[in-house]
Design a protein around this nucleic acid. Structure first.
Lengths: 254, 254
DNA sequence: TGATCCGTTGCAAACTCTGCAACGATCGTT
DNA sequence: AACGATCGTTGCAGAGTTTGCAACGGATCA
């Protein structure tokens, strides 16, 4: 809606690909160098971009610290954290907490496995939305028309042979997940990694977050992991209860 | 330099304080509601702000995932990480990696202590710049005039009785740190927590990052922690060596 | 039911932003 | 060593975007 701001903000994802010089930024934006320069200057003043010694720009520290604050403001995270830690102490595996927001599902908390074999993931990282157990739970809770709309505009990368292949399969999986109230990812993202996940609900019953326990095949089989399901669900319910007690902040779905 | 972008970016730190409604944003910006609305809309389209069900705005998920990418692009971090993990395995305590950028020093990596008593800190969080051992190392490396300029514009909060009290004391400490090539924080931030830190240097000898080992008094005394200094320094040197091998990206200091 | 508060929209004036062209510095080449 | 090329930077005037206003509609509360 605001051309100038729109252009300035478009610079950031561009720089996320890696450092870029003025000419490159101008080209990618489709504007004159002088225009790009002024936008970059403004971003720089706010610390959103940083200028290296070679004159190239990259994303700045301010962005990182702001994002940090953004996460600390999420009240689900605050409430859930001690529960995640406790669950991790009981089962030993990696525990994740994720939320959904505008076509992205991302991890907002993580407690590392006690086992030496750890999975790669990071707080703040968008999850593989078509296969992750937490993503299934979060999307399954959407009203049907939205669910279909989302499903149809997604890509379905075949990370492994068991990845969700297309929108149809995804919608069927979501329907199943919606009904049973929990979800799994059995090697759909990485061949040897399995997850079980449960939803966290607000006072109105809507899913506000999802948590999962993940472990590689070499540590426990999928069957063994599934035996943890009741415990995971109980933990999620405990968080739901505590969260519902407070003034919940539901999210707009338009 | 660009008024519109400047205003739009000013909204973000404002929202970092917590969710705000349109009127509040407009007031804080000193602009008309309709102006604020249009800026917020643009930010929203890019996912930088999110609109809650109660119509209020808060920081959005895109900000978080962008910051994530920003950190993954830092090459020091990538090189250092395995070294940090190894050090953590040897000493058991929390290990941090920090960089300096435009008046902020922030943690860009962390390996958690194996002991049950853990210290509070988070990747992406700005560190207490006047007391943290890593901050001392990073600032000590600046040319003298810059060092003084920075020192004089800082605040000196007395977290504890041993916190650096003022610019004068800070500059003396920096001089000492600069000479000895390592730094400590003995209860200057939190009464019972001590740190030892060492610098990581680029090919040109300039400090590009700093790493530290932190532990609470209840686990090891300050004296015991100091015996780890040689190991910390050796680790830092190893990282420096590896980092210098690549094309280093020095940072502009203006 | 009426009043108030808040977000939203169209419009015209005003101001900001844009692209251009020219400059200077740096770097690599002949 | 000098030249050419590349890149970032600046002043300027026209163009286009942005701004504040005022009015509308919906929601909330008394």
């Amino acid at each position: 809606m605001s051309q100038t701001v729109d252009r300035a903000l478009s610079i950031l994802p561009l720089l996320a690909e890696g450092p870029a010089d003025l000419g490159r930024v101008a080209d990618r934006l489709g504007v004159h160098k002088s225009t790009a320069l002024r936008l970059l200057r403004t971003l720089h003043e706010h610390g959103f971009v940083y200028r290296q010694a070679d004159q190239r720009y990259r994303l700045g520290a301010r962005l990182i610290s702001l994002a940090q604050e953004a996460m600390e403001n999420l009240d689900v995270r605050e409430i859930a954290h001690p529960h995640l830690v406790r669950l991790n102490e009981q089962v030993g595996h990696t525990v994740h907490l994720a939320v959904h927001e505008e076509d992205e599902v991302l991890y907002i908390d993580k407690v590392e496995s006690r086992y030496p074999v750890r999975m790669y993931s990071r707080i703040g990282k968008p999850v593989a939305i078509t296969v992750a157990a937490v993503a299934k739970l979060l999307l399954a809770d959407l009203p049907e028309n939205e669910r279909r709309a989302v499903a149809e505009q997604l890509d379905y990368p075949m990370y492994t042979a068991r990845s969700t292949p297309n929108a149809d399969g995804f919608l069927k999986e979501l329907a199943k997940v919606r009904e049973q109230g929990w979800a799994t990812d059995l090697g759909g993202h990485e061949e040897s990694i399995n997850c079980v996940a449960a939803p966290i609900r607000g006072a109105d019953g809507r899913v506000v977050a999802a948590m999962s326990v993940s472990a590689p095949n070499v540590v426990v089989t999928a069957e063994e992991l599934l035996t943890l399901l009741p415990l995971v669900r109980r933990t999620a319910d405990a968080i739901s209860g505590e969260y519902s007690g407070r003034t919940p902040v539901k999210e707009v779905t338009a």
